[in-house]
Structure formats: C-alpha cells, structure tokens
Amino acid sequence: MQIPYTVEPRPDTGLYNAKLGVWLFLASEVMLFGALFSALILLRTGATSWPHGYEVLNVPLATINTMVLITSSVSMVMSWAALRLGDFGKYRKWMGLTFLLGLIFMVIKTIEYAAKFEHHLYPSHDNFMATYFTLTGLHGLHVLGGMIVIAYLLGPGSKMWMTEPERYTNRVEVIGLYWHFVDLVWIFLFPTLYLL
C-alpha cells in the first residue's frame, strides 16, 4: 500500500503529511526547550548569586559557532532551492556544506566542553554549569540528529531523487525546517547563556 499525500497536499490540511508532521514535532520541541528556558529563569531569579556568562564561557568561540550555524541555515535553504530548480549537483554541494558546517559546530562545541572539563567545571559544579550543559548538550544532540538525517539524504536516501524527485524534494524541505529550528534555538541560547 502506498503512503498517501507524500507529494500532493491533503485536501483538508492543504499540506503534504510530512510537512504537517514536522510542524507538530517542532511545536513539541518548542515546549521541550521552553521548559528548560523556564527552569533557567526560575533558577536564575531565585539565586542569590549567578555568574555572568561572559565571565565563565568562551564568547569568541560561541560567536564563531553562531556564524557557523547561521551559514549552515543558508546552505540548507540553498540546497532546497537547487533541488526545486532540478539541479541535483548543486544540491549535493550545498547539502554537503551544511553537513560540514554542522560538523564544525560540533567540533567547536567539543573544544569548549573539553576546556570546561580541564578546569573541573562539570554540570555538578553549580546551577549555572548544570543549565549550561543541559541546554547546550540537548541542542548539540539536535545538531547531531540533523547531521545523521542529512548524511542519509546525501547517501542511501538520495536514490529517491531518481524515482520520486518531488517526494525527495519534500524530504529535504522537512529536514530543512528542523535544521532552521535548531538554528533558531541557538539564536536564543547564545545571548541567554553567554552574554548575560
């Protein structure tokens, strides 16, 4: 049996199923990160002392990572545009760049974590480090998850382009929406944790 509405929109929703699915998933993600931001506000407003992020964390590295993630969002959306223009070669280059930028983000994050561990700064150190590791760790796992899907779409999953190009383009749009959401979360994490 064929899965319905993978390409054409459902008459009642006006969307193909995967697109509605990813938006509902992203809504649950807003609540997941929202709960953690809420916990951060609760802990920070209730604390007698709380360090400024820029005193403890590496702002230059985080700024570079912000630029890396923003650039990866552009390369992601350019890869989707290339597919819509039917240029699979260009799509592979843009999507490959997105994967590479995701990898650079993770390497920089690892360097940042290693420096913290060197100074014996673990999640158990204080509430600030606990929230820092929880929020950035969960965000990092999301980047990693996105990279796995991108690798699949560039590797074995790319066969679909030959048989069902529109369905493949929709898959790229859906992972794109997820990737931009991960970028969006970082846009708020960066000033909240590092600059205030």
Binding site: W23, L24, G34, F37, I41, G176, H180
Partner: peptide, 29 residues
C-alpha cells in the same frame, strides 16, 4: 528560511497554540 511568510493557515494555528503555552511556561517562573 522556514517560509512562514507564506504558509498554510493550519501551520499558523499550530504555532499560535504553541506560543500561548510557551509564553505561559516562561511567565510562570
């Protein structure tokens, strides 16, 4: 990037509902 500038009404409905709960979550503490 997420092309919400020209999206279907159902997506806006989902996001408005999400934002109501999100704002409540942030305002509680």
């Amino acid at each position: 990037f997420m092309h919400l500038i020209s999206e279907r009404r159902l997506v806006y409905a989902v996001l408005i509902l999400t934002m109501i709960f999100f704002v409540a979550l942030i305002l509680l503490p």
